[in-house]
Write a protein that binds this DNA or RNA. Structure first.
Lengths: 243, 243
DNA sequence: CCAAAAGTGTTTGTAATACACCCATGG
DNA sequence: CCATGGGTGTATTACAAACACTTTTGG
């Protein structure tokens, strides 16, 4: 009942197929999430490709013959933002036959996390087609990019509960309030202040910097930083983040 | 500071790149997990491709111009096993530049879950190069397939705790012991019988068939089946599996 | 009646939740 | 001295974990 014999699995078939038409353009698309301590944003680019002229799209590019997908995503991120060594995670590969108007383009989606500081915010100024949009207010995007964005957002939310990646969206020094805000904003939930703080204390991954906020017209908050090395040590001993 | 101006993001660049060398062969590789109520197996194929002659590899194929990756994975699964409508999940895309000896082949990994019955076991007989190997005893595979297998196994274990997919590895009617065995074997953990049963009762997703095992030389176990529709209804109400 | 696996409750510890008041600072 | 957000503890409840004996069947 199996159809094994119908298959020709020898090398020559592969060689001829690879060299003929069995090739596709391959791209990466990056969902670059930026957090400015108020809203989660995503970096978009105004498209000039028919039939999507004027619509926004994610930033992406074709994968060159001598780079991996990871490298390609890093390159795209660097070319668009000037940032290196940024968190990037592969999410899913999208392959609908008609997803791209110029022909078959199979694309792999990545998301990345950056702190949105004023300098980064500027990349959308001038004649640039780049735009930081609030994720909650993204409208219809070009290609299948709404679907890609949705998948990446789901993945981000999943990971945020699972791994300590939230810190990548905050400055090195932050208050517990800032951290809680981040979780509330990105996950779109409300958290109890006291329970949140207790849980974080129990995780024992923050360093108390013995510094305070300044220039705030209320009691200044204590500042903390995330201890990546401590986390790695704990993780290796079988510890799990689980917020 | 941004390098936006160095980018040429207009259509003509795309068209010329797509039509020139910016193409790659694209394939799928399927980690077909089979469970025989004792061990988790994976379907492998003896390779004849230098330099991997004689080594086993996962089953896979090039993606044809008119099919999606999902469809391609379904096709591979059907061609190798004769099975349709089987659980398949995309895991990750692998893109090391030198991962394939015949040139650049970017591959997307899927895993799938099948019940290993005697009929399915037969596909490795005769002159077939197919082989069901115990996952625990898989040696060195061709290409980067050890890495792919590992990623898929991790994903399977993750999902097993998260979504009710374990039932796909069992016959329609099963005992609670069979179910517990499955979890223990695949996750490589030990579970407490009473706690396991209590938890499953609490999830309220099994149908008591009011049938018993027969022809066993001990007290026969009650048989249950998984209620997919009940699960979907619960899931839509915000219920989570979480074993 | 023996072997082999099925089936069943209770106790104890730990983590999640809910909740309200005082504190420090800038203006 | 007032407005603003920062910071803290306790009581209750739900869930996880540990654990041992009786029941049913086939041989």
């Amino acid at each position: 009942m199996t159809t094994t014999n119908a298959l020709n699995e020898n090398i020559n078939t592969w060689i001829s197929q690879i060299n003929k038409e069995y090739k596709a353009a391959v791209s990466v698309d990056c969902v670059i999430f930026g957090y400015d301590e108020n809203d989660l944003h995503v970096l978009l680019l105004k498209s000039d490709m028919p039939p999507f002229e004027g619509k926004y799209s994610l930033v992406g590019d074709l994968v060159t013959p001598n780079e991996t997908l990871d490298e390609s995503a890093e390159r795209v991120l660097f070319q668009r933002t000037g940032l290196k060594d940024v968190f990037l995670e592969q999410v899913k590969t999208f392959s609908d036959v008609d997803r791209h108007p110029l022909g078959r383009v199979i694309t792999t989606a990545y998301y990345s996390l950056v702190k949105l500081n004023p300098e980064l915010f500027k990349i959308q100024e001038g004649n640039s087609k780049l735009k930081w949009k609030k994720v909650a207010k993204v409208g219809e995007l070009a290609f299948d990019h709404n679907s890609i964005l949705e998948n990446c957002l789901t993945q981000l939310r999943y990971r945020l509960r699972d791994k300590p990646i939230g810190f990548k969206l905050l400055p090195k020094k932050f208050s517990l309030k800032q951290l809680q805000n981040l979780y509330e904003k990105v996950l779109d939930i409300e958290l109890d202040k006291r329970n949140f703080r207790r849980k974080l204390k129990a995780l024992d991954l923050l360093v108390d910097l013995n510094e305070n906020q300044s220039d705030v017209n209320h009691r200044p908050a204590k500042l903390y930083s995330f201890d990546q090395e401590k986390y790695e040590r704990k993780r290796k001993k079988g510890f799990n983040f689980e917020l």
